[in-house]
Structures are given as C-alpha cells and as structure tokens.
Write a protein that binds this DNA or RNA. Sequence first.
DNA 1: CGGAACCGTGGAATCGATTACACGGATGAT
DNA 2: ATCATCCGTGTAATCGATTCCACGGTTCCG
Lengths: 338, 338
Amino acid sequence: MTSIKDVAAQAGVSVATVSRVLNSHPSVSPDARTRVLAAVDALGYRPNAVARSLRTDQTRTLGLVISDVLNPYFTELARFVEEEARALGYSVIIGNADERPELQDHHVRTLLDRRIDGLLVSPADGDSPLMADVARAGTPMVFVDRWMPGVDVPVVRADGRLAIRDLVAHLHALGRRRLAIIAGPAATTTGNERVEAFREALRAYELTLPDAYIGQGDFQADSGRRVTERFLALPEPPEVVFAADNLMALGALDAIRAAGLRVPQDIGLAAFDDIPWFVHTAPPITAIAQPTGELGRAAVRALVDIVEGRSPQSVTLPARLVVRRSCGEPTSDKRSNL
Amino acid sequence: MTSIKDVAAQAGVSVATVSRVLNSHPSVSPDARTRVLAAVDALGYRPNAVARSLRTDQTRTLGLVISDVLNPYFTELARFVEEEARALGYSVIIGNADERPELQDHHVRTLLDRRIDGLLVSPADGDSPLMADVARAGTPMVFVDRWMPGVDVPVVRADGRLAIRDLVAHLHALGRRRLAIIAGPAATTTGNERVEAFREALRAYELTLPDAYIGQGDFQADSGRRVTERFLALPEPPEVVFAADNLMALGALDAIRAAGLRVPQDIGLAAFDDIPWFVHTAPPITAIAQPTGELGRAAVRALVDIVEGRSPQSVTLPARLVVRRSCGEPTSDKRSNL
DNA sequence: CGGAACCGTGGAATCGATTACACGGATGAT
DNA sequence: ATCATCCGTGTAATCGATTCCACGGTTCCG
C-alpha cells in the first residue's frame, strides 16, 4: 500500500505538506498543491483511515445496534440511518442483537473497541448495566424506537397512542368488542407502552382488557403463533387480535389459518408496524405505520449533534393507522376518514 | 480513555509486558501476568482496536457490499454472513448499494480505506473497473450470489438450473404452455442466467420463449409491476409469469390484482428466491428457494481462507423448487414429489 | 567451573497519519 | 533602513498498540 511518505517523495515535498493539501489547510502554495495532487493521482493514493483515526481520535463511524435485522421494520430503519449518516459524512456499522441481550452487549463492546464516534441503539432488553455505564462514561449515544428507563440519553421514537386509539375506534365501529393483544417483551419499552395505550383506548369505549386477552410475545413470529393458539382455545375467544409487531402478526395469521378460520369473517387481525407485504397478504392487514424514514434520519441527526458538540432534544413522531381489510370490510367509519 | 501505558504503570511493568499478556505470548512470568490482569480489571481497560490495526495491518473486519438490503433474500444472507464471521472472530461492515453502481463503488472505496481484511461482494452491475482493479491488486475478495465475468475471484452461489427445470415441469404438468419471465438486469449474472436456464428448460418441452414474453426488470418491485402490465396488455398474454426475484414477483402480483385477475385461475405466478412472506400472500406463491444460510457461511469461510493464506474453491449449491398454489392447484405432479 | 542456552523483561522502533513549532524569506510599516 | 509580521514549508512529537533486540540472571551441560 502506498502511504503518505510515498506521495511526499513523489511530489518532492514533506509529508506535512501532503497532509495539508489533503485536509485543505489554507497555507499551501498553489505550486505545491498541484504537485501533491498529481502525485496522489499518479500513485492512486488513498489515505489510511486507520492511521488517521488513531491520530485524530475520531473514526467518522456510527454504530447501530438493532434488536432484529430480519424484522422488516428494522431493516428499513437501518437503511435510512445509513443513508442519512452517509449524507453527513459518516459510515455506519450495524450490529444485530437478534433480541439477545448478551449479543447486544457483545456488539456494543466491539463497536466501542473500534472507537466509533457515536452509538445508536434500539435496546433488546430493559436491563443492561453495560449500556448504562457506556452512557455515563459520556459516549455519544441515542436510543431509537425503544429506550431504557434511567439511562439519560435522547430518544427518537414514534408515539402510537393516537393511532392505537384510532384503531380501537375503527374496531368499535365495526362492532368488535372482545379485543385481545399480543404484547412485546415486558422488558422493552415498546412492549409495555403498546399494551397500556391499548388498554387506555379500550377504556374510552368502556371495554376492558382481561388478563386472558393479553398474550406475552417476544416480537418473533413463533410467539405470535403460540399466543394466538391460546386465544383461540379460550371458551370465549377474542373477535380481534392486535399484534404489537409485524412478525407476531405473521405468526398469528398462521395460527388462525391452521385453525381453519377466516380473516376477517371469523376473527380480525391488526398489527403494529406496517410493512410492504401487508398489502399482499390475504386479506391485506390493517396496521399502524411508523414514519420510519423520519425516525432514522432524526436519530442520526441527533447523534451527530452530540458527536459534534451540540445538545439535541428527544424526538417523538406520531404513528398513524392504515385501514385495510383484516378487521372487517371498511364501512361508514372509513368514509368518515375522508 | 485508558491506554496500555496506564495499565503498565498500574501493574508496575512495561507496556511490552502488558501487550504480551494481552496477546497470550508465552514468555511472561505468572506473577507479572496476574498483576497485569488485575490492573486491566481495575481500570476497565479495553485495547484500542484502531491502534492495534495500524500496527498489525489487520482489522479482523470483513466488508460486505450488497445490492439491496431491503430485499429479504439479501437481508437474510447478510445475517448469516455476520453470524459466521463472528464465529470466526471477524466483524462485518455492510454497505448497501441499492442496485446503484456508483454507490457500490463508494462503499468499496470506503471499506478499503478502512483497511478491511477482505471483501464480500454481490455486484450490482456487470462493469466496475474499480472492482477489477481491487481484485487485481490482491485484496482478498469473494463474490456471493452474483459475480463479474473476467474478475478472477472465487464465487459462492446457488445454481437454479435444476430447480427451474423442475418449475417448468410443474407448470407443464398443470397444462400451462405460454410462460413468460421477468428478467433481472442484463448486467448481472443472475439476471442472464435465469433467463437462459428458463429458455433451456422450455426447450425440453418444445416450448419457445418469444421476445414478447421476456420482460426487462431491475430486481425492484416497480419493474415487476410495469413488465407485468405489458404482459397483460399483449393480444395473447402469458398463462404464467415467472419473476427472477421476489421483489419483482411482488410487483407482478400488484399488477395482476390491479387488472382484476385472479391467481392462479386467470394467471399463474412463480418467483426466484423464497421468502417467509410467500406463505402468507393470497395465494401462497410457488418459488425457488436458495440455501441462503449455507451460501452465507460458505462465502465467509472462503473469504477467511484467502485472508489467512489458504486458497479456497468456488462453491455452487443447488436451489430447489417449493410448490405452493400460485400456479394452479397442485395435482398429480405434487404427489409425485412425495 | 566456564560457556551456552534460555527466560522474563524493558527500551525503542514502527505502523501512517496530523499538527505544534521553528525557520527562512518576503512583505509591510515606520 | 529596520524590525515586525506573515507565509510556506519541514522537522519531529504524537496517537496506542506490537515486536525486535539487548540485557541480566538462571540453569544446564560438558
């Protein structure tokens, strides 16, 4: 590999001058500048980012630790994060935690060892002492989608409260009364929040959420299947199942099919997190869509703000209900949306 | 940040000794070892990977440049790649090319600047001088899924030839004769190959593939939609549309629905690349499944082989047909599979 | 008993960049 | 004319690790 020394030799200047040209430092003569540029070109020289990082103590790299890359919601989020980071001159290293706390910690440690400039995390679990330490140590950090109570860093997320209220209104208008939810892990903030918002929305219609109608899932398809099977085995099964994420909705759909029931005639289904495939399932699934692009961009901007010495605020964006046909044929309440 | 010097001071030894302990070099006294380990623990010291990389000229990092992360096939591939790499002690940096050659080159350059130890690429386009240069320069490199003719590096991929023949047999048995294909970009190897394999398989049944039945797609959903619309507008539209990847199949499904046609009664649909969602579409889609896990693992192993001085072979694994209901109700030929 | 072999250790060079500091020459002010 | 200022440049220190080499002290063998 050609180094800055080779360029200096070729151009007949010192390495300092080469470095100055490369970093567009003002005090370089036009003559020296052209000679250096010519040498760079001739040798096909590219600065060694590793050496540069060691010296400057910055890598222009962001770490993104995500709970599950196979979840289309997170894949999309990751894509937007990379896009915005690139626009701001940063690279992104993604770590997939696979919803496993120890894998999450592994990635955080590896990223820190590589001296990334900042960390974007969607925590898999509510209790990671490592994460708290890292935040306390002053590593630039931002939570996205999920967060950890007690860890004082900005949070970028979507608020589903209103959308969930809209969903319940929609279900109520369709005459559905017995509504069940497949919750996320209790340890995640999004897990709890969605249950609470759901319960609250039901209360507005004087409906209750019995324990039997709260299934404990883990944001993976399999758990959605298991929970739904239990719902269906109830003496009085729910009329609609609301899954707290798209993967569990998929599992629920499986279980419903396996039981020989039809959606929406026999049972309704709705999901948190909208994804392109929901348009193509049979029937298309009613879902709550998060503004993924905005979320990813805002998260990166907040993180880069910290890295560059500014102090960003937390950001909360609204999610919105997308009505399709999985809870019943849209009727009057659909029209009232117009 | 605490450095090796701090540890040395705390333990009362030289930095050389600390380094030896950390790299489990044999000649260190047990006494020194314990003191160093104690100091490491007390200070919470973690070696600076950047400095280490500069000195040793290896980063224990692999670069993965992928044509489109939002394509579930590649997402899955990326996941397995990371998994295997981690098992082998490497990290992975993913670059998403979004099917854009210039973005692909950008990522390759960035990764090289970071001095990754090896490069795993699924090229977006058939003609990248940069890629050829990089390979010629001796950078450890492996192609996965797609490759570039003329660039001499190992290729890890699935061969769909047999599976495509099985698909055509299946369609033929169902009485389908007018078969069309939505091809991938001509510049990608997988793009061409699948068309050729399809044409060849048709020949075995004395069927032809007229030009009007070959649509030019770009592996994205939109192109699948456009091509299918054109197919449907033909005086004699095809009886089955075979999409060369899952995203284009999705677009095709859209177009078919929009035209008010039913699958499989009015027209059949099949896809290359099987994904979990195909089970849940209406109807479930017949697809050709690649052994993604094996592909990802084999690619990493081949790359690490090169990095560590061995000389791996190219790997070709068979894809296989997964019959569902999108081409017609399975009849006798289904049973013959048992 | 003397020299060779070996072991644990530290000093210092090194990787490839950035950057503080010094220096010589030109310019400008008085 | 003289001195301060400024500009372009080079020398060398530095970032945090690894590793070659040398050195002093044992141990071993003849």
